[in-house]
Write a protein that binds this DNA or RNA. Structure first.
Length: 112
RNA sequence: CAAGCAAGCCGCUUGACCGCGCCCGCAAGGGUGAGGAAAGUCCGAGCUCCGCAGGGCAGGAUGCCUGAUAACGUCAGGCGGGGGCGACCCCAGGGAAAGUGCAACAGAAAGGAAACCGCCGGCUUAUGCCGGUAAGGGUGAAAGGGCGAGGUAAGAGCUCACCGGCGGACAGGCAACUGUCCGGCUGUGUAAACCCCAUCCGGAGCAAGACUAAGAAAGGGCAUAUAUCGGCGGCCCGUCGAGCCCGUGGUAAGUCGCUUGAUGCUGCCGGCGACGGCACGCACAGAUAGAUGGUCAUCAGAACAGAACUCGGCUUAUGAGCUUGCUUGUUUU
RNA sequence: GCGCCUGUAGCUCAGUGGAUAGAGCAGCGGAUUCCGGUUCCGCGUGCGGAGGUUCGAUUCCUCUCAGGCGUA
């Protein structure tokens, strides 16, 4: 999944997109402009120092990558980390990513 | 063995599966990929641009000496001062006789002295008055050199020896400084108070800057003269450039800069050392929402922490451990 | 990257190098009241940290930690 690059696109998504949140993450979902899906990850400086922020960003990207074929195309998705994400391990983050994505209707229906 | 001092090292390893950036390759694939602090941004440089940067004022920084270095506020070796039994450690360490300010409280008196108590002399009825005196008491962080002897009415560098400080000469040393002798007999502290002296400093920063694409339009207004605007971080002088303003409000796309360099390792030589010279071989990331990750195993355990133009330092954070040299004490031989 | 500011009581802020660091609100205790409020009296809590300069530091200097701001 390609990444969102422009700061203006991020701001547009924050202003207009639908969102949901749990304890460690916030998700934004907006219709894509070109039909392909894009991923954006925001971890602010308040969360921790550079090593902590990088770790959160990599884990979110990994969780999305491993389940990439389950995502429906045509959406721009932004994840924003909240403070407890600094203490969360990979499994908690992965669970949160999938749960929030499912709640926003971004995943294909699981076969029972 | 115990306590301690100094210097240094290391900064998990390996494997399986799934992934990422860059380079090479038609492809398959191969190579390579964060730190000792990458951090804080406290200093110093390279590099780039600002129409080469000149003078004065203001401002800032540094401050024992000699050296190292591209440079430094860094480092090395010395000197001086302080602490420790010692190994060793710490110090912004120029000028207080150019001037100004400050020194609370206490105390009689806080800086070209001063008599509260005391001591001594004179007068006087005992209280007391006048004069001399800084040895003693008391106050204070600090009381106008220290201690002893002579001296005296009592005292005083008043005189003398020693010590300390000041000035001069000589000797040693590149120098800071040290030693010896002589002289005079002395003038508190604070400059991380203002200040004085010496030395240094043009500014901005890779979002610098260059190129490409796009745009820079049409139109309107004001000036044509020494005015206006702009550049040279602040002000003045000086200097350079340009007609000026409205329209004119937005977007940050691509390529370069961008990583091989005052580089690191190794060896030899010079130097007490910082460091320098030479040689051969090897090594060295380059992203642009921003690459090193995820899971499992291995393990007694795994800190602080992530490159964004590049170097030299400083400072701070840091788990478990290891090495070398030295000091003091105790015991045994 | 460059530049700037602030840390003082639980909170908001004062404080020329010098006595026991103050003010308002809050808190605690007492008085008043049947109880509470109001009012009155009293009390506690301290200079972000380390080092230095000074006789003496919240104040001056250096380093450091934390927080905040501006700008490209």
């Amino acid at each position: 999944m390609r990444s969102i690059k422009k700061n203006s696109r991020f701001r547009a998504i924050y202003a207009t997109a639908k969102s949901k949140a749990d304890r460690i993450l916030v998700i934004y979902r907006a219709p894509s402009e070109d039909g392909e899906s894009h991923l954006g990850i925001t971890v602010s400086g308040k969360i921790g120092h550079a090593v902590v922020r990088n770790r959160i960003r990599r884990r979110i990207r990994e969780a999305v990558r491993l389940s990439e074929e389950r995502f429906l195309p045509g959406y721009d998705i932004v994840f924003v980390a909240r403070k407890p994400a600094a203490q969360a391990d990979y499994h908690e983050l992965e669970e949160s990513v999938l749960k929030l994505s499912g709640a926003m209707g971004l995943l294909r229906e699981e076969k029972a």
